[in-house]
């Protein structure tokens, strides 16, 4: 068994530093295993979030060697051999402690988006009919595990801190999932353009690159939504209708 060296961010809201830990690395081990071993061996109070350890809950998001990743899905063998592994908390959110950040902003943003509102049932027994091919795109969006890595990597949030006027890739995917749901009847485009700040996104596709669920965030969610915003607000005929016909 080889020994691995890990540089882990330790700190609270005020101050912090990297500390180095050594622990055994066995075959197939992931970064989260190393964190657990370090907790059990030498840093009992090292704060880290995790739940499923199978890439399904999106709790253990962190930056590994500077890349936003899930700790439970990152095999140590896939990192440069023999080199120190750096583990840091996500940067786009305030730090609580060590590897744990305050992601409550995401929960607040979600609440501002109008909820699903289905059309009347298609059948007398209160059920609907949908074809598989009509729901596949939305099923792709609904794979999202809310790890918030896309939020973490997005420069609008990470570098420019525009949390107040931009809801971030996660909530564009969320809005797209609602908007393209065949049964949904709600209108969310105005919110997307206004509070959602979709215009700030300049399609660098960083979010798509880090998505552990491999959702094509930019191509399949954000770009179609941007097109809808353009159709709705910048189409001259529609604009006329809005002026004379009142908001729809």
């Amino acid at each position: 068994m080889a020994m691995g060296t890990f540089k882990v961010w330790r700190g609270d809201r005020e101050k912090g530093e990297f500390r180095e830990y050594k622990t055994d690395v066995s075959e197939g081990m992931v970064v989260l295993d190393a964190v657990h071993q370090i907790q059990a061996e030498s840093a009992i109070d090292l704060a880290a979030r995790w739940n499923c350890k199978a890439g399904k809950c999106g709790s253990c998001s962190a930056e590994i060697n500077g890349m936003p990743k899930l700790m439970c899905m990152t095999q140590i063998a896939d990192l440069p051999p023999g080199e120190t592994v750096t583990i840091e908390p996500m940067k786009a959110f305030p730090l609580i402690r060590d590897l744990v950040t305050d992601v409550s902003w995401n929960y607040a943003v979600k609440k501002t988006i109008k909820k699903f509102s289905p059309r009347k049932p298609d059948a007398p027994d209160g059920t609907w009919r949908m074809q598989q091919e009509d729901i596949e795109r939305v099923q792709e969006f609904r794979k999202c595990i809310e790890c918030f890595l896309c939020q973490d990597v997005c420069h609008v949030l990470r570098d420019h801190h525009q949390h107040a006027e931009f809801m971030g890739p996660r909530f564009f995917v969320y809005t797209a999932a609602l908007d393209m749901q065949p049964l949904d009847t709600e209108e969310r485009i105005e919110h997307l353009k206004g509070e959602g700040g979709i215009g700030f996104c300049n399609i660098t596709k960083c979010c798509t690159k880090v998505c552990p669920e491999e959702i094509k965030i930019t191509d399949n969610a954000i770009i179609p939504l941007k097109e809808r915003v353009v159709d709705e607000f910048y189409d001259p005929i529609k604009k006329l209708f809005r002026v004379f016909g009142g908001r729809r």
Binding site: P118, T127, R129, Q132, I135
Partner: peptide
């Protein structure tokens, strides 16, 4: 759950 937005896989005639 379907009325609350869940999207289950479908049968050929469009049911769950």
């Amino acid at each position: 759950l379907e009325a609350w937005g869940a999207l289950f896989d479908r049968t050929k005639d469009g049911r769950i």
